[in-house]
Design a binder for these strands. Sequence first.
DNA 1: ACATTATATGGAAATATGTTCATATGTTCA
DNA 2: TGAACATATGAACATATTTCCATATAATGT
Lengths: 121, 121
Amino acid sequence: MDRNDDFESCSCTIIHEDVIKKVRAIISEEDKFYELAELFKVLGDLTRVKIIKALLESEMCVCDISALFGMNQSAISHQLRILKQARLVKFRRDGKVVYYSLDDHHVEQLFDCGFTHIKEN
Amino acid sequence: MDRNDDFESCSCTIIHEDVIKKVRAIISEEDKFYELAELFKVLGDLTRVKIIKALLESEMCVCDISALFGMNQSAISHQLRILKQARLVKFRRDGKVVYYSLDDHHVEQLFDCGFTHIKEN
DNA sequence: ACATTATATGGAAATATGTTCATATGTTCA
DNA sequence: TGAACATATGAACATATTTCCATATAATGT
């Protein structure tokens, strides 16, 4: 079952070269996975998850969100900027007030899928 | 300073109370969203994304993964522990070798959904 | 028992991240 | 024009994260 092959980049002596070869292609797609990881990183923060969840219900201004979560306006602005850069939210300005809303409907699907995992464990 | 006492952390005077009321329920579900954010946080790292992608193809031992990515065995072990704690991977021991494999098939769906978002932007 | 090998783990260092504070920007209205 | 207000942003700070190093643990074979 085990193959003893020398492989220079690892000090281990037991390497399954057939497996490595099969899976090696994913390294060439590293950029793709970097983007995916970046997306998940954006979603990997409680404040941002709550903002998205709130925006699933209704568009909201920065001040509403700050009030809703009892958080600093600055903190919310910073987080909205991250969500904006990830193209997850968009905004419209109405006078002094800036309203944010979701820019991607896949987020809901991602959330549902995430919850499915959580519930199964 | 006139301040709305209901929302101590926000000094804004224009608040859309109806919107706040509508969305307020999500605060009571904070634990749920904390778990979701934690899941996304685990997926929000390139090394872990690559490990998962690799394990989608085949079960692999720690050494294989280290060799494949040209990374320290210790780094891989630490990352596998995080994935294990999130119940995303499982392992079996065969002598000295520990083989890791995926423990959740929803991950693939999450990845697909993430890629859909990335492609649309 | 001892050496070897694969993996796990604690600690340290470098880096990344989230929040707050102070302040800037942009808009409205007197 | 200038005051008031909503939002944005840079800097600073505290905390979290990732990797590496050294070493521990576990399994195997001599």
